[in-house]
Design a protein around this nucleic acid. Sequence first.
DNA 1: GTGGTCTAGACCACT
DNA 2: GTGGTCTAGACCACG
Lengths: 142, 142, 142, 142
Amino acid sequence: MRFSIQASSAEPIYRQIVEQVRRHVASGQWKAGEELPSVRALAQEHAINPMTVSKAYSLLEAEGLLERRRGLGMVIADVRPRGGLAPRLALLEPVLRSAARQAAELDLRAHDAQALFARCLREHGVADGPPDPESPGTGRLP
Amino acid sequence: MRFSIQASSAEPIYRQIVEQVRRHVASGQWKAGEELPSVRALAQEHAINPMTVSKAYSLLEAEGLLERRRGLGMVIADVRPRGGLAPRLALLEPVLRSAARQAAELDLRAHDAQALFARCLREHGVADGPPDPESPGTGRLP
Amino acid sequence: MRFSIQASSAEPIYRQIVEQVRRHVASGQWKAGEELPSVRALAQEHAINPMTVSKAYSLLEAEGLLERRRGLGMVIADVRPRGGLAPRLALLEPVLRSAARQAAELDLRAHDAQALFARCLREHGVADGPPDPESPGTGRLP
Amino acid sequence: MRFSIQASSAEPIYRQIVEQVRRHVASGQWKAGEELPSVRALAQEHAINPMTVSKAYSLLEAEGLLERRRGLGMVIADVRPRGGLAPRLALLEPVLRSAARQAAELDLRAHDAQALFARCLREHGVADGPPDPESPGTGRLP
DNA sequence: GTGGTCTAGACCACT
DNA sequence: GTGGTCTAGACCACG
């Protein structure tokens, strides 16, 4: 259960944590009951302020994605309807809409933008084949 | 030479201005020597503070994209390598890399992410055909 | 880490700050990682507006000389080629070129101009001996 | 009687004109009675606003360096005690004091700063020999 | 505590 | 007319 934190990013650190949890839970990669790293462990690992981690965990708890098990730390909550393709695409859509707006302002052709996106996906190890049958999301976009 | 300002956006107003100028110059839609709207005019048009516009203009001047004609206003600077496809893709890449990282964290298949992106591009009016021969960028991604 | 601000100077305050940081970093007197005074502290110390200080810091951040540690303050960025003689002379050159042009327009002899410059250097405490061996720049002009 | 105007300089155009006249008169290169280029000729030659030239001329007239000969344009006024070395060095001193202050902040050695200045003087054609005996200034700095 | 953003208004310099 | 600078004060986001 690893986080990737970039202190230099424009995105606030607490928000990076929140969204990474959201995405990993939505995709089923992190499952109900699994323990998250402790606040101070995560803070020390990435040399960030424990308050920052705590704030992220609290937001996720308020959202219902995490549960506080006293004495044990935080665990992934038991969210019922996880796993479909649609909710995951819904999480991805905002950034793609923004990208499309920028492409329009740059007067690019769709073909060029998509070729660039394909390369980015490859570089991030996003496979093109069908998902693992174990995986919860097997649907396809119409 | 129109700007689209959304005061409600999370992106600061001055930054919206900066990035719109960057993209329009990179795409060759705004050419060297063209005059920008005056600080006061742009501020009044969008009901924002002149200082906010001035801040954006100053940053663009420091960046070398704009030139100050003293007593006359700002004009697009004579930046040589205008128009090619590569610089425009370079401006688009960061957001697409971020999107790819999110897709990976969501455990999506490349095919699904690309289908969604295609829809977003369509909704923003990004054409798929070859660019207008008048347009400066006619290259293609290898 | 002290600044010398002269509100009465023709040079804008924010620019005085910017250039002093540039020179102190170029000379190695201020090193990567060192914290700058907070916006509010520097503003209060010199009885100027925090926005003025903030503007200077923002420009230096855009230039890459400073880094923002969110919630903590600004620190000198880790700019690699610190300390050599050449970059410092490069910062001094513009004013000396201007002085030389003026000397030419005044139809002065080089000897006289240099004698005057020598006196100015002495009055500003610029030593003539070799630099401290601890100091980063030990080279000499060819 | 040529002017060198740089619209991109930080120094205002009208001030460039004023100071160039001051220096050429102080050095005796421009003598009493000589005619200056007309406002519109100078403006057209350097592609600047005639108002800017006019402002410079007016300042110089107020200062007593120029005289307005109706119907003939401006001529150099008959300033009595021009020519000594001292007043010319006085005009050069401010920029050299500024250069010395910058050298101090850059932690430079006097030797290096002076070597750079020598090169600048050479590049601007400032001779090292004694001045022409015709020239008004023959003194030497003690 | 830190800096960022925006507003409002004043004054200046340049053309 | 143009933009630049500075002040004063408010509010926000982050740690």
